[in-house]
Design a protein around this nucleic acid. Structure first.
Lengths: 228, 228
DNA sequence: GCTTGTGAATTTCTTCACAGCT
DNA sequence: AGCTGTGAAGAAATTCACAAGC
């Protein structure tokens, strides 16, 4: 009777979907929980538990067949239904510096249903330039454009000092999610959700993990270690 | 008697250190667990529990003073001792496309003790170019350079199709950590640790979180929602 | 009054183990 | 034989609640 899906499960479901899609591209039709687990770096038990959430949802439907496995096609469809990949969310990119430009050239956003709908920069030399199919807009247009086009998610790719102020602006004009590349914690109204991409923190964790593993030898599992 | 520091705690300790450093820059001398908690988006209880790990470590030392708080200076020093920020780790950047170039221009890596020591690309037009202070090297130099300079961490900023092969190469020449920007799970030997920066998965989680929060109104806590 | 530190309770997530289907 | 689904056990992380210091 549990309607809520655990956070870690949501994440893994997305990984499964991507992996299974890739198997389909290669002509595979069935997949077992242990196959999938190996590819994603997760125990087969965990895979089955995660996939069991599909069956609990009316629309996603049941899937596994004992002795056989899961049908790839149905599986990705089911996961996407459950985990909401059906909707498209447009993005507003704020900051067209190095990271911003990299994001504009990053085709996957589009392909995955997250089109960048507009790009803004404070730098006058940047404003008006065309980058790919975007024309960089001045910050003065930010509210207007986001409101008019009802863009739900903002990407902050600006220097740390500017991030909080722009986050405030974005929240004020109705954004409900932020993808934050600035190395700081943003403070936002309670209805807004922030996802941080924090490169230096990630690197620090990585090096800490490396340092720790050197000290603690013997682990029986033999595949891979993963951090998000 | 617990020598091991929980993963989530390591992450938060890094966030605390950064935040406290910023307070120092602004002239602050003391900080309380609730101050710090507010800034990082964590309950004060949690902050204290996390900081208690400092006292358990001989070298990091004890810190909090009841009724007063923590001394900012000593705190960052203590955290950095505990969480290993003293060591420098050099990086090998593999792939000088959009993301790769953005990383080369990203000053924080250097400042935080993670200098990019070399950059490689498979594209002949790229090889030999100077970008900032780096000269892009051909992939044929990859093993030589990494072995010679004993670079411990590789950054994979290459297309998905190339990622696994290059990961294999990097692991073969002694890298012990990988920062992977390719949208896939890498398979690596057990002693190598992988940290993934997965933009589309992050976006999918973000949009799922947004969708969920719309459905479940009343939560009593009022600050921010954070995902890594 | 405001603060830290911490055992105990609680919640969340993972792993185990096995019944049951193909 | 090989596989799924799941209750039960276990482990990990968070939150509570309160004694004790300033």
């Amino acid at each position: 009777m549990d309607r809520v899906i655990p956070k870690p499960t949501v994440k893994r479901l997305n990984l499964y979907a991507r992996e299974v899609q890739r198997m389909i591209d290669v002509g595979q039709q069935k997949v077992s929980s242990s196959d999938l687990g190996n590819r994603v770096g997760v125990k087969s038990n965990q895979v089955r538990k995660d996939l069991a959430y599909l069956a609990r949802d009316e629309v996603a439907g049941d899937h596994g067949r004992a002795g056989i496995g899961y049908d790839c096609e149905r599986l990705v469809v089911g996961i996407e239904k459950l985990v909401g990949a059906q909707k498209r969310w447009s993005l507003a990119l704020v900051g067209v510096g190095n990271i911003g430009r990299a994001l504009l050239s990053y085709a996957s956003f589009d392909e995955e249903g997250y089109p960048i709908a507009a790009a803004f920069d404070a730098n006058e030399k940047m404003v008006g330039k065309r980058i790919g199919r975007w024309e960089v807009q001045p910050m003065t247009q930010l509210s207007r454009t986001i409101k008019a086009r009802r863009i739900p998610i903002g990407i902050l790719a600006v220097p740390r000092e500017a991030a909080q102020g722009l986050a405030d602006q974005l929240c004020a004009v109705g954004v409900v999610g932020l993808l934050n590349f600035a190395p700081m914690q943003l403070t936002v109204p309670p209805h807004v959700i922030v996802a941080n991409i924090d490169l230096t923190i990630t690197l620090k964790q990585l090096s800490m993990d490396i340092a720790l593993k050197s000290g603690s030898g013997r682990s029986s599992h033999r595949r891979r270690k993963e951090r998000s």
